[in-house]
Amino acid sequence: MSDAVNSSTSNLIKLENGVGRIVADDWTWVRINKATEEVKKQAGKVVLFKLTGDATASADEIAATDIPAQGRVLLPLTVWLARKDELSARVAANEIGVWVETHELVEDLVASLPDINVLPLIAVHVERFADGRIYSAGALLRTRFGYRNELRALGDVLRDQLFFFKRTGFDAFLIRADRSAEDAIASLKDFSEPYQGAVDDKRPLWRRHARSVTA
């Protein structure tokens, strides 16, 4: 059994020429129904917590995941890795995207394809925002692996994170359902001049602005 959810069109933000717009979402986000979740205490709070190497889903859960027969679908990494051979025609038709959890390795996704850019959409999902692994995943996909298509942040995506998602290569953000996408767009202008170079602009501040030299 799986949970296929059409993401709210009102909460998806995409960047176009650096400007955020709320747009309709034509992707169906497929998630695996899992019987149990590991719950641990971290920093005094109860959070969902996983380490790299933990199994994301069982083989039975992966096999039981229902992949919609039509339209553009965003699949969990585990489902993609186990069932990619049956999806080759839909990959060629630009109907398949893949999302990864922050505890999963983006290298596993890259290794599964001759060219990572055959996927029109890759997303990174954070269950509860507690560290910066989603930023690292985005930066790796853009810089080390040369991914050029839509890179989307999913899950616990909040207003104050968007500026930093943009800096690390994300160009689409599905804002958490209980928050306002309109308010979140404004956060992209929270800082006018970042000092460091990053994925969105590799030049540090001193290279972006010429200094006048006085005698």
Score class of each variant (00 low, 15 high):
Asp160Ala: 07
Glu86Arg: 08
Ala123Pro: 03
Thr143Leu: 11
Gly146Ser: 06
Ser136Tyr: 15
Ser88Glu: 12
Phe129Lys: 07
Gly132Thr: 13
Gly132Cys: 15
Arg128His: 15
Ala64Tyr: 05
Ile62Trp: 03
Leu75Ala: 04
Leu140Ala: 12
Glu104Arg: 04
Ile116Glu: 05
Glu95Thr: 05
Ala139Arg: 13
Glu127Cys: 00
Thr78Trp: 01
Ala137Met: 12
Ser88Gln: 14
Ala92Phe: 07
Pro120Ile: 12
Val100Ser: 13
Val106Cys: 06
Phe129Glu: 06
Glu101Thr: 13
Ala64Phe: 09
Thr143Trp: 06
Pro68Lys: 14
Asn94Pro: 04
Ile175Ala: 07
Asp178Leu: 03
Asp60Gln: 09
Gly138Lys: 10
Ala63Pro: 03
Ser88Ala: 12
Leu75Pro: 06
Ala139Pro: 01
Asn117Cys: 06
Ile175Thr: 06
Leu74Arg: 06
Ala123Ser: 10
Arg90Ala: 13
Arg142Asn: 11
Ser88Trp: 03
Arg128Cys: 12
Ala93His: 10
Leu158Tyr: 09
Val157Gly: 00
Leu174Ile: 05
Lys166Met: 07
Thr143Ala: 10
Val110Arg: 00
Thr168Asp: 07
Ile175Tyr: 05
Glu104Pro: 04
Glu101Phe: 06
Gly71Glu: 11
Gly146Met: 06
Asp160Glu: 04
Pro68His: 13
Val79Ile: 12
Ala123Thr: 03
Gly132Lys: 13
Val157Gln: 01
Leu154Arg: 09
Ala57Ile: 07
Ala57Phe: 11
Asp178Thr: 11
Glu150Thr: 15
Lys166Phe: 05
Arg152Ser: 06
Ala153Lys: 09
Gly146Asn: 10
Tyr147Pro: 10
Ala93Val: 05
Glu127Tyr: 02
Arg72Asn: 12
Arg90Met: 09
His103Val: 12
Leu113Asn: 02
Asp171Gln: 07
Arg167Phe: 08
Ile116Pro: 03
Leu121Met: 14
Arg133Lys: 12
Leu174Asp: 06
Ala92Lys: 15
Val110Phe: 00
Leu162Tyr: 01
Val91Leu: 14
Asn149Ile: 02
Glu104Val: 02
Ser136Val: 15
Gln161Ile: 00
Leu140Phe: 09
Thr65Phe: 07
Pro68Gly: 13
Pro114Tyr: 02
Ala57Cys: 10
Asp66Tyr: 14
Gly132Ile: 04
Thr168Lys: 11
Asn117Leu: 01
Thr65Trp: 06
Asn94Ser: 15
Lys84Asp: 00
Pro114Arg: 06
Asp115Trp: 09
Val110Glu: 00
Val126Glu: 08
Leu105Ile: 02
Gly132Leu: 14
Val98Pro: 05
Val118Lys: 07
Gln161Ser: 04
Ala92Ser: 15
Ile134Pro: 02
Asp115Met: 09
Ser58Cys: 07
Val157Asp: 04
Pro120Val: 10
Ser136Met: 14
Phe173Ile: 01
Gln70Cys: 12
Gly97Ile: 04
Arg128Phe: 13
Glu95His: 14
Phe170Tyr: 13
Phe164Trp: 13
Ala92Gln: 15
Leu113Gln: 04
Val91Phe: 00
Ala69His: 12
Ala137Gly: 04
Arg148Ile: 07
Arg152Cys: 05
Asp108Ser: 11
Glu150Gly: 08
Gly155Leu: 05
Arg144Leu: 08
Thr56Arg: 11
Gly132Pro: 08
Ala177Tyr: 10
Ile67Lys: 15
Asp178Cys: 08
Leu162Thr: 01
Glu104Ile: 03
Ala137His: 13
Arg159Trp: 01
His103Phe: 10
Asp131Glu: 15
Ser58Met: 09
Ala89Leu: 10
Pro76Val: 00
Gln70Pro: 05
Ile116Lys: 01
